[in-house]
Amino acid sequence: MYPEPTNLWERIEYSTLGTTIAESTWMFPALETAHVIALVTVIGTIALVDLRLVGVKGHALRVSQLAKDTLPLTWGAFALAALTGGLLFCSKASSYMINPWFLGKMALLALAGLNMMYFHMTTWRTVEHWEQDPSFPTMAKVAGWLSLVFWLGVVFCGRAIGFTLGIFY
């Protein structure tokens, strides 16, 4: 029997969905597995484009073509990561909301999104003009490095959550 929820996070945690996931022996690890598969797809495909932006060549493929090729995988996997992440959150919502690593992960996700949005609204608009140059514009390199750092931070925080969840009570 669960106590009466006192805030929104407890309301989510003690919901039928939250308690079903928390009480199941297989649901949490299964969701974790799907979350990891989705996250490595997001990070791997984003890193391919970011590494190209920061100057790791290794091939002659245009960065606009590379971005076009990776985009369906990135967004598809991001949708799966968000869904599985949301379900994992439901099972321990109040513990996650007081965990600084979880909050850090969410902040870094937001920063990664803002960085991508800003880059696409500015430097990326003229990609046809510079993608065949020997060196990309500084802003493209900055966006690539920032993206790599933010996503590395997302993975680190994600792993740190597993080692610290429940110790902040």
Partner: peptide, 25 residues
């Protein structure tokens, strides 16, 4: 130490899996 190694391991898996997916595409 372990979380840092796990993060590195995850990044390696991300690279491998992305390469396999792109070959599939």
């Amino acid at each position: 130490a372990i979380p840092i190694m796990q993060v590195t391991h995850i990044l390696g898996i991300a690279g491998s899996f992305a390469a396999v997916l792109m070959l599939n595409m």
